[in-house]
């Protein structure tokens, strides 16, 4: 089966006065229909910029400088704004982190939903309204007819995020990119939304990229995981492979800083050191300064392997030595 979304060698740089920020560098992954990819990494590792690149939403001084993004075989890199508009919200949709900010405060919900349908389909208003109502029911919003006439401030945070998800689902996209959509919500709501998103994607065959810095969320949700560090994917594989048998020293460090992974009573292990500045990345492995396994060989950036469970490291854990 051909993957719905194939990203390969994607690099997005920001050309700032201070220098070139390599926010995304040589990122590759593939997603099948109905599959869920967890994109994990700490703050600033390039997760959101990977998402924006796939949406064609990188603004100057940023630019996608290399790579290919194929949606059902169709190459999106090089598209002009008009063609990107036909993709966005129609075939690839995105949901953002803070539901308090993503809906326009001065527009009614029906306006914000209808425009999403009408931007892509030449249907009468009634039909667009019917689809909006249907999407709201799907994400578990009670009495949609009434809610459609409300303004965002009349909704709770969880409900607003459901509205955003409903908007993302409206045009039955092939791929949804969810950028930490539950981080701002409380734990119970977070659980509900995770469960429903998973169900919706499975049923409709929509591929989902779930961006998060929280490994525990990924464990119950995703099929595949890609771990990002300083703009690059350092390890990727199935959830079981990456979480249970992590091979990259950084992934292993992340696992040990998750409470569930630690024996009770012991302090959480932190990865020593700080994330390197994306401006001053040299030729060496970006994790080198913080890595206990580093050797002279690590002066060169390791390539990522080609296996299903791939790792970008000269000395991965659990390798026969």
């Amino acid at each position: 089966m051909r993957p719905v979304l194939e990203v390969s060698g994607l690099s997005t740089h920001f050309f700032t006065r201070a220098g070139v920020v390599k926010a995304v560098e040589d990122v590759s992954f593939a997603l099948n229909a109905g599959e869920i990819l967890g994109l994990v990494g700490e703050s600033g590792s390039g997760k959101s910029m990977t998402g924006y690149s796939i949406m064609g939403l990188i603004d100057p001084p940023g630019k996608v400088v290399a790579g290919s993004i194929r949606l059902k075989g169709e190459e999106l890199i090089g598209y002009d704004e008009a063609r990107w508009q036909k993709i966005r919200g129609n075939r690839i949709a995105m949901i953002f982190q803070d539901p308090m900010m993503t809906l326009n405060p001065v527009l009614r919900i029906d306006t914000q939903m209808l425009e999403a349908v009408l931007a892509h389909h030449d249907v009468p208003r009634e039909e667009a309204l019917r689809r909006s109502r249907e999407a709201m029911v799907k994400v578990g919003i009670p009495s949609p007819d009434e809610r459609l006439l409300a303004y965002p401030h009349q909704f709770s945070g969880g409900m607003r995020q459901r509205v955003a998800i409903a908007i993302a689902l409206l045009n039955k996209p092939d791929v949804i990119i969810a950028d930490e959509p539950t981080t701002a919500l409380d734990v119970t709501i977070q659980g509900q939304i995770l469960f429903e998103m998973q169900k919706l994607c499975r049923e409709s065959g929509t591929a989902l990229i779930w961006i998060t810095h929280d490994l525990s969320v990924i464990a119950g949700l995703a099929d595949k995981v890609a771990v990002m560090y300083a703009g690059r994917i350092v390890e990727t594989g199935t959830v079981d492979e990456v979480l249970d048998c992590s091979r990259h020293p950084y992934t292993r460090g992340l696992m040990c800083s998750v409470p569930a992974c630690n024996p009770r009573g012991q302090p959480l292990k932190q990865i020593p050191g700080m994330t390197p500045s994306l401006l001053s990345l040299g030729a060496e492995c970006a994790f080198r300064e913080r890595c206990a396994r580093a050797t002279a060989q690590c002066d060169t950036m390791p390539a990522i392997g080609q296996d299903a469970h791939a790792v970008r490291c000269h000395h991965p854990l659990g390798a026969p030595t």
């Binding site: 949406m55 508009q85 993709i87 919200g89 953002f96 993503t102 326009n104 999403a116 931007a119 892509h120």
Partner: peptide
Amino acid sequence: QDYVKFARAKGLR
């Protein structure tokens, strides 16, 4: 603001 990014992400002109 995020709502502008979201509006663009919907594919609006």
